[in-house]
Amino acid sequence: MGVAWVFEYPLGDATSRIGAQAVKEIERQLEAVGAERDGHYFVDSMPYRPNVNVQSGISLVYLLHHSEFPHSTFTIAPDLKERPGLARAVSDRGFDLILGKLGSGLTPDPPGKFECTGSKYVLKDFAVRVGSASMASSFKGVVVEIEYRPLSVTSMSTALMREFVRSVLPVLSAETPTFISRMQAHEQYYPIDTLHQYLDLFLELRKRTTLQPQPQAQPVQPSSFQPPPQQNAPPVQQ
C-alpha cells in the first residue's frame, strides 16, 4: 500500500502529438532518471446503469479493476454527492459475477467502458505507471500514476511527491490532483482512492471529448453534465 497520485499528461496541441509518442517520451524521461521497467499494468472501468424502473433507488455505479490488486473489484458511485465517502466498496473479484445476476436492477454499459494500459516503472520506493486511456478503443489521453509505496498517509507524502514530480516529470509539477488536495490532513490512503482518481480522470476525459466537436465560442450547455446522448437511450433488454 502507498500513496498514489494520478495525472493526465498534458498533450498540448492534440494534433501535433500522438499519445504513443507522449508515452514514449515519459518512459525515456523515467529511464534517464534510473527507473526500471517492471511489467505491464491495466486499469478498466465499466459503468453500470440502473434500469428505468429502479432509477430512484439505485444510482449509477462504476466497476473498476486494477492489475496491481488482482483479487479485488472496486465499486464507486461518483454521483452520490451528499455522501461521497460511503458510496465506495472493495470486494472480491466474484462481485462481478454477483452483479451479473442483478440484471433487473443494473445493466452494464459497454460503450462507456474505459481502459488504461501501459507499463510500470520502479524507482526505489516509487512506482510510476504510464499508460494510455481509451474508451471503446478510441484513444482519449495519457495517464500517469505515481505511487510512493512506504507511506499510507496522504498529507505526509505531499511534499515528497511534489518534489519527485518536479524533478522527474516537470511538465506535471504545476498541479496536485484535485482528489489529493481534497483529502483531509492525516487521512489514511487506501487503494480505492487510487481507483477513485482514475475514475475522476476517466469522467473528465469523457466529458471533454464529447464536448470537443462543439464550437468553443459557445457557452457550455447546461446539458453537458448529463451523460452523452447514446447513454440516455433506455437500456436494451436482453
Binding site: 500500500m1 496491481e68 490488486f69 483479487h71 472493495v90 487503494p191 480505492i192
Partner: peptide, 9 residues
C-alpha cells in the same frame, strides 16, 4: 480476504 483488503500483487 485478499480481495476485500485490496492486497497488492
Amino acid at each position: 480476504m485478499s480481495g476485500l483488503k485490496a492486497i497488492p500483487a
